[in-house]
Design a protein around this nucleic acid. Structure first.
Lengths: 199, 199
DNA sequence: TTTAAAATCTAACACTGTTAGGCAAAATTA
DNA sequence: TAATTTTGCCTAACAGTGTTAGATTTTAAA
């Protein structure tokens, strides 16, 4: 009856509270600080109670991942409605994807396994910048003199790096191995960018 | 004298063994399984000994990161020597970067914070594929009929995704925030790809 | 051979995810 | 209403984590 429904609702609330508490902790202290006891503290329970709502910690992460995908799809739908041409819609959807990643940074991180590196990279270890410098210099070399500016080369460098690193990340996280697809995407992107620099 | 040198060498060896043992464990069981005690076991010591060579676990990860960058630069140099034109050299260097990421997967992961997601994504939760489907369909829509094949749309979808996700990952890990650069790279890539589809 | 120093270990602390078992309040049944 | 069952929640524990302090053994110097 009504009491059963009320109990059901309280259970759903608690489940929701666990998810919200988790996300709050991550927002405040990062993924590394998320623990079952900390979640329990936030919702005024002890840790074992959580296991009545989620079978383990991974299940919480998985549900947050799912929520992330739902939210992302919603944002993309919203963006699509703002444009009338298909080209405009496609662009709007990618921009919505982009904005989602930063507006819901923590969700994006758990969705795609993008973790902050241990410690601050910018300890200016010279080894860190050498690969970048090698590529940067070579891009500079093939850039026609009239285009050659720091901003231009920077932009091209980041364009290269984005496609390559993006494709690598996708391959490393989703272990879907599609060699011929990778090769074509990579070749397309690299030759496309080289052409866009030379002309 | 000689005894001091020998001691010095043993110390260097131990330091090296710690790093190699760490990488071995990660290769066998993944980053999540790497622990100080497990490293110590592999080199026939107890855990506290490691702290005479590295101030903490992060320092080990940091050194592995550095080693990764050195190795990457080496591979890129090798690749560069194989070509004579600057365009060929640039392409070869990016391909070397690409191959490095898979040949030294664990190093690439610690260098760029690309972690495997908790559990297998392909539990075929329909929510996971919705954003992809939305984009895929829209790409199909703007693709001229004579080009329209599954392979073609797949390739274009992954090209889009790679740039956008790559740029996001770079922004999330290296917290270097360069808004105008991001906007330009993103706009360039998206409009470039849309044009390449339409023509 | 005694003494100083270096190398290494054990034990502990505070944390982690997770499970088992118990206690008390609530709901159900007689 | 009284007895019984179910539910909700907690404490305590286990095995693991990174890390530190202190004791102990081994090596080197006097």
């Amino acid at each position: 009856m009504s009491s059963k429904d009320r109990i059901q609702k309280i259970k759903e609330d608690t489940r929701h509270n666990i998810l919200r508490a988790s996300l709050d902790i991550v927002k405040e202290e990062g993924w590394g600080a998320l623990s079952m006891r900390k979640i329990a503290d936030k919702i005024d329970y002890t840790a074992p109670v959580i296991y009545e709502y989620f079978s383990n910690k991974d299940a919480i992460l998985k549900e947050l991942t799912r929520i992330g995908y739902v939210k992302l799809a919603g944002k993309m739908e919203e963006a699509r409605e703002l444009s009338t041409t298909p080209e405009g819609q496609l662009e709007a959807m990618w921009l919505a994807y982009w904005h989602f990643a930063f507006a819901y940074k923590e969700l994006y991180q758990v969705m795609y396994g993008v973790e902050m590196n241990c410690c601050s990279i910018e300890n200016s270890c010279p080894d860190y910048v050498r690969p970048m410098n090698m590529l940067w210099d070579k891009i500079e070399e093939i850039t026609p003199a009239e285009k050659r500016s720091e901003e231009y080369i920077d932009r091209k460098y980041y364009s290269f790096w984005s496609v390559v690193h993006g494709l690598i990340s996708i391959n490393l996280t989703n272990q879907i191995n599609r060699d011929e697809l990778n090769r074509e995407v990579l070749k397309d992107a690299i030759s496309g960018l080289i052409n866009s620099i030379k002309n």
